[in-house]
Design a protein around this nucleic acid. Structure first.
Lengths: 352, 352
DNA sequence: TTGTATGCGTTATCAT
DNA sequence: ATGATAACGCATACAA
């Protein structure tokens, strides 16, 4: 692996130059392969570097070239598996392309988010990845001031300011509702996520496109656990109850199911639940939950790739839409679509 | 929040100085509060900074002070809630102390881990946080070459090379087994984690200390999902079966429970399971699972705090041990310990 | 093929 | 209370 890092005071390019008996320019060029250097000189320099355990200073280089090969990743919360998984994809291709990633969280708060980005800029990141929490035009104006390349994931920034990588949740919702209807459900409720996000709009569109006339079962949520709790109370209060429900946010789904199980077990027995995101807990719920799995890893990989392209001056697609996958835990929802992989069992992918 | 970043070329300290009609020295001192500046001058400078959307360059500062105020965090896998939660604690105090955090993953592979650290060093991080995956003396030698301050979490590095923040899993295991015995269990099985880690040893010690004679129900695991699957088959093959089992790793617990539910439902009905870590999925399992919750957030906070102290030249404790919390989902395990908060219901903390 | 010299943005040591 | 300026480590334009 690495040869010793030296005692403590690190070698500089000047030290190396002296030891090798050449100028600092030569050393620099050897390092970067930026002009031809004689065989023997090169060897001397390399040896000097090795002996001194020289590592180029990121500071000096960053100051000069104004880049540190670093990406900024702003997650609402890394504790949310969605972001953790996207990050994994991001980090994988970032490393492939010799970038490191600084991670920050915004707690889904536009102000925190802006501060986080500002901080990243100050740190000299070459580009930023985030899932815009803001929904207003004013915020879009703030976003537009960001002086480095940006790619958003999960959502499209207001006014479509940046290239984005998103899941096709419209199609996914459409498909889910279609399956439920094919299975005989008529009264299909919808629990919406935080309003204003492109994701929420997409999912709502998918729902409405698949069902008509629109049932009067729509709950306006907030993308948080407690929103799901309230949705559970809400849905339990109907006299002719919906027989199915689609929940367009993972945290809300968790609050919803937990509340139903604890306070309204009979409701849970009689309602078919479809949730967003293929998370471990959904596997353990009884009666079973079907889920819409997002291609989180791909989202991360694509976003990081696009950002790296952008940084290196290439142009990229303004929008990349990746397909979701419906995972029926209830076999009867497996229904045969043309071109459908036709998953049947509780075949969710074990973690790790 | 931030006023415009300018069109693209960012403001420097020089720009600010000109605009405020002062020298760069004065600006610098205003920023850092490093010498007294007249009321009005300060105000002018502040305003100039605001107008220009000035943000001090990390490069310039880093070059001068030889620090970028950046921490490196090496997680086995951010997709594992344990690491995500620890990271959250880390990031919180890092930000308080004006550090940013670069995140990398090692997949629990010592070689990857070493490469990741090396990479972080080259990036000029001021210190490194990680949960050492290595167990050998050779690796300890490699670890010792790391030229920046290090604090480990979760585990103690071989030969105790670095200050560490760990959970008191020995006590937690002891307590868990004690509760099971108090509840009448005699045949309590133990599913161990990856051998060689200090954590595994601690948990094993806690188990053995609480039970005698030692039952012949011990499974050597690997800290992965598939290890749990195999443990499930293993435990189901006994003729007089253990009536309880403690599983000392979260991923293994998941594989274990999932396999039991799918292939050996009757075994699941008749065995009391205690798992590591308070994760959402454990809430949804029936019959219920009791868990040992680690103070993940605190672990992260403490570790980051210690690292920051170390970096600023202070000395820190070599080892900090934080208490775990037993969360009984089965009320009968709530048992009255003196000084016990006496949790009873399924009161796990909802996420977010 | 190689060396000299300059500047990147900050901070800190001198002066004033 | 404030200003001028050297130095940090590196990359590069220009000279040789």
């Amino acid at each position: 692996m690495q040869e010793g890092w030296g005692v403590c005071l690190v070698a500089t390019i000047k030290t190396v130059a002296e030891r090798a008996g050449v100028s600092t320019a030569t050393v620099s060029h050897v390092i970067n392969g930026t002009r031809t250097v004689s065989e023997v000189t090169a060897r001397n320099v390399m040896q000097a570097m090795a002996e001194l355990g020289y590592v180029p200073s990121a500071f000096g280089r960053g100051l000069r070239k104004n880049t540190l090969k670093t990406l900024g990743f702003v997650a609402a919360d890394m504790t949310n598996p969605y972001f953790a998984q996207v990050f994994r994809g991001v980090e994988t291709v970032a490393l492939e392309r010799h970038y490191n990633v600084i991670v920050t969280h915004s707690d889904e708060d536009p102000d925190k988010e802006l501060r986080a980005i500002s901080n990243l800029i100050a740190r000299g990141v070459d580009g930023v990845l985030f899932a815009p929490a803001a929904t207003t035009a004013e915020m879009a104006a703030e976003y537009r001031k960001i002086p480095v390349p940006v790619v958003t994931f999960d959502r499209i920034a207001p006014e479509g300011t940046f290239p984005a990588v998103v899941a096709d949740s419209r199609a996914a919702m459409f498909d889910a509702v279609r399956r439920l209807r094919a299975h005989g459900h008529q009264a299909i409720a919808f629990v919406s996520s935080k309003p204003g996000l492109s994701t929420s709009a997409d999912r709502w569109e998918g729902y409405t496109a698949a069902i008509h006339p629109l049932p009067p079962f729509v709950f306006q949520g907030n993308a948080r656990y407690d929103g799901g709790e309230r949705a559970a109370h809400w849905i339990s209060s109907f006299k002719p109850r919906p027989t199915a429900v689609v929940i367009s946010n993972n945290l809300m789904a968790m609050g919803f199911v937990a509340t139903l199980l604890e306070h309204f077990p009979t409701v849970m027995q009689t309602i078919e639940v479809v949730a967003m995101d293929d998370e471990p807990w959904t596997t353990f719920v009884r009666p079973p939950l079907s889920v819409i799995a997002q291609p989180t890893d791909q989202i991360g990989r694509q976003a990081a790739g696009m950002l790296a392209d952008l940084i290196s001056g290439q142009t990229v697609d303004q929008l990349k839409i990746l397909p979701c996958r419906f995972i029926p835990r209830n076999p009867e929802l497996a229904g045969g679509h043309p071109g459908d992989p036709g998953q049947t069992s509780a075949g969710n992918t074990p973690p790790q």
